[in-house]
């Protein structure tokens, strides 16, 4: 299942790129994210609790980056295990372009669910995935805009995390997946 979208962000490309690589911003933007932990320059662990309606699923995810082109974009890959609920994985291509005074962020994500999640949740997955992606970018845009205006999300102060290429548009990938997961219903 492919999800794509774009978002105008009232911030410079440099600022957006920085935020896309700021674990704190990402953690604050990813719906249900309870922590991002850097393992290496391109690998991260993510903990996500996804709540959709009565459904609540916890995911342990790994996120990695490839094709990193500063201020232009990257491809982010992610996978997460939700125990007996199954697993999610995905990848997303994120591209940045100047857009007037701001930045246009385009993303194309592909998310897959596995196991029980796939078996009982596929009917509504697209709706959940799209909504999750939208929520991420709404949050992200809000934070980046706020940061431009001088206000940092509180979590950005989280101790000692270097601003490195991290996750990012992560949105997409795993994270979307994770939330999706959440979605199930029978």
């Amino acid at each position: 299942m492919d999800i794509s979208g774009e978002q105008h962000i009232p911030a410079s490309r440099g600022a957006v790129w920085q935020a896309l690589n700021d674990p704190a911003v990402l953690e604050a933007s990813i719906p249900g994210c309870e922590g991002l932990e850097k393992l290496s320059d391109t690998d991260f662990d993510a903990r996500i609790v996804s709540r959709i309606g009565s459904i609540k699923a916890r995911f342990q995810g790994q996120v990695s980056l490839s094709d990193v082109r500063p201020e232009e974009g990257y491809v982010i890959h992610g996978r997460g295990q939700g125990g007996v609920a199954g697993a999610v994985k995905g990848s997303a291509t994120v591209q940045l372009a100047d857009d007037g005074a701001g930045t246009l962020l385009r993303y194309t994500a592909r998310a897959e669910v596995a196991g029980k999640l796939a078996g009982v949740g596929s009917r509504v997955i697209q709706g959940v995935a799209s909504k999750t992606a939208n929520d991420f970018f709404d949050n992200f845009t809000r934070y980046v805009s706020a940061e431009e205006g001088g206000r940092m999300p509180e979590s950005a102060a989280v101790a000692g995390w270097r601003r490195t290429p991290v996750v990012a548009g992560s949105v997409a990938a795993v994270l979307v997946g994770a939330a999706i997961a959440a979605a199930l219903l029978i």
């Binding site: 609920a85 009982v120 959440a182 219903l185």
Partner: peptide, 10 residues
Amino acid sequence: PTMNVRLAAP
């Protein structure tokens, strides 16, 4: 049903 398939566990 959602609880029975353990996707919800209130």
